[in-house]
Write a protein that binds this DNA or RNA. Structure first.
Lengths: 213, 213, 213, 213
DNA sequence: GATGAATGAGTGTTCATTCAT
DNA sequence: AATGAATGAACACTCATTCAT
């Protein structure tokens, strides 16, 4: 119930809720999917009871973290689409920038197949994902029209490649890792740019081909 | 200690050892790093006691799985280097082909930072890794000499990119996932081919820049 | 303390108090002695805080429920004694009729020995119980005088037998259960009637022999 | 699995199993249905893990306790039926004697409706119960033929009455309680004996009328 | 007074590891 | 050597009680 209508919470409860979500996201990434709930609560500065009042069990917490960060990713993608002149730049910006985006793209690799399935089945998550796909789809088309993105890739291919890239992000970033990421992204972007190379095998993948990411 | 000298084992014990290693590798990939030891034993068709006789604890088992698969990857890379005419083809073949290679490249994403650190510290693993790097280094140089691989990438960049690619492999592969993998690989290879595009940022990464992979 | 002087409460507070007591009695019988306090509050339509304002802890609530229902039982027994011509009929009526009586007789079977001990030690409960015993004692003597009740039973035996009978009442009554109860009562009453059978073993039990019921 | 084939266990494991069952039965009666599992394990002299290896959860343990004691009750009833000259004596003996019988008759009062339902649904328990009913049915008929048991009661009435009687047994027996039990039993037996009193209301209840006991 | 959010101690259950058979 | 039973520490989750709003 709480999770369903976060707006209705008392001010302090809402603060706790946000604190827990942020802490949990970090904890999952740093310590894996089995961080003790007590550890999450401790880091968030609340008692376990409070954590459980907001999220009835671990799965509910995971779900909420995903929803939260996917929603943030959607917001950023829309901003990028609205603000960037070039669709290419909007694509690059919307799919690599924020911590939230990185988190969302890495979460499926953290959790067990069963939980990933639950995540994909969640109606709220599906809804946000659908909206996000609409935005990316638009950018892909615009970028192909402006001649910057090769014509034989689809939204699915893009999401897949950026997923791969961001999943590789070190848990504890350091300079070398940043350089490696930057260079890997450059190689991939080079591969994505419109140019006269060989066509890709198969057909452009749509986002629906790739439900899982 | 048994683990130290697998050659000395009785025939049935050696069979058990191999069965356990194979089962554990699969179990880690399918069920994640927290598969109960008892589950691994059960799937391998032995009692827990037997599992513990071969591997004194979970960490020892993980280590042995990594060693085992890294060694297999080395063997394959050498085969590819020896058999392929083109260094480019040897690179592609040695870094994408086998289940063992995929496993090795995915293992660091499965385990907690602490275990990954232990893996990287293991002398036997360091030794195999060093030999593997020698092989890849040679292939990179040959490929750049034959003009197929762009000159501004290093062995580290390559390992990084292939790691990213193979980490993305679904636990339960299906056709779409296979196509997505193939296409992503094609984009990356396109990005890696020698061509007249922009230079990559930074300097070519060596394998030592990238200890973790 | 609120619990000590329920007469002094504001009208709405008194209403809450009565609602909580009634709900708790039902909840204990339906869901057992461990119904969460929050569940009781919810069913009573109040917040937990309100429940705790009226009854400082679970034991206090249990005690109040027992007091409440024991008092109602006393009232009914007095009515029966006053209204029935035959002492026998007054006995039967006063000890089988009401929900409150059934509840009171079943409560000791619901709670742990420790709580039962606390219940028996409560001065208010002892006082009501004493008055009730006076009434039953009188009825027993009158019934034996009128020749309807066998002479070798005491008030303790009677209370014991009726306790046994009413404890057997199903939580979810149905027709068969009602018939079974009626028939069991008939057998017991038959056994209690003055007749020429064997004497009972031992001596008539007084109510004080049987503090616990 | 373990619970299903207790014969296959190693000698020490079987000893543990029996110890746990005996301890649990006692613990449920003394401390109620929520005795900590750890407490049961401690009293049985084993670790919690051992308890859980034998019985996967609390419900399984409860079920096993019921099965165990119901089976013992059946054995005793058969012995009584075979050994006693008079069916009346066999009835009295088989339905009042043993600790196991008392336990079985009290267990339904200890546990929550949900668990009681599960108990009644258990196929093994239903089977034993059916056999027990056959034995009692035979005794009832024999006793009515020999003229000792009134003709207007059925097996269901008998089981009901003895259930009521034995449920009343104090958790911590003392002399007065023993006397009270003995006297209550005498009253009920008096009520059950063939004599010229009023007929019981309704019709004789069969055991199937009374599934719950 | 009433509310319901926060707390944390208590308990069920799992699982890595040890050890008797 | 192999087996699987026993152990107990660790973690998920619940709920009595307190306290800020």
């Amino acid at each position: 119930m709480t999770a369903g209508s976060p707006e209705r919470l008392r001010a302090d409860a809402r603060r706790n809720r946000r604190k827990i979500l942020a802490t949990a996201a970090l904890a999952f990434v740093e310590d894996g999917p089995y961080v003790p709930m007590e550890e999450i609560a401790r880091r968030a500065g609340v008692g376990v009871g409070t954590l459980y009042r907001h999220f009835p069990d671990r799965d509910a917490l995971i779900m909420a973290v995903v929803r939260d960060n996917l929603a943030a990713t959607l917001v950023r993608a829309r901003q990028a689409a609205a603000e960037e002149e070039q669709a290419w730049d909007a694509l690059v910006r919307s799919m690599s920038a924020s911590d939230e985006t990185r988190l969302v793209l890495r979460l499926p690799t953290l959790f067990s197949p069963a939980i990933v399935a639950a995540i994909q089945a969640d109606p709220e998550i599906r809804r946000i994902r659908r909206e996000l796909v609409v935005v990316i789809d638009g950018l892909v088309r615009r970028a192909q029209n402006e001649g910057s993105l090769r014509a034989d890739v689809g939204t699915g291919d893009l999401i897949h490649l950026f997923s791969l890239l961001l999943r590789g992000v070190r848990r504890t970033p350091d300079d070398t890792a940043d350089v490696a990421l930057e260079r890997a992204q450059a190689v991939i972007l080079d591969g994505l740019r419109a140019h006269s190379g060989d066509l890709l095998p198969g057909r452009p993948l749509s986002a629906t081909d790739l439900e899982a990411e």
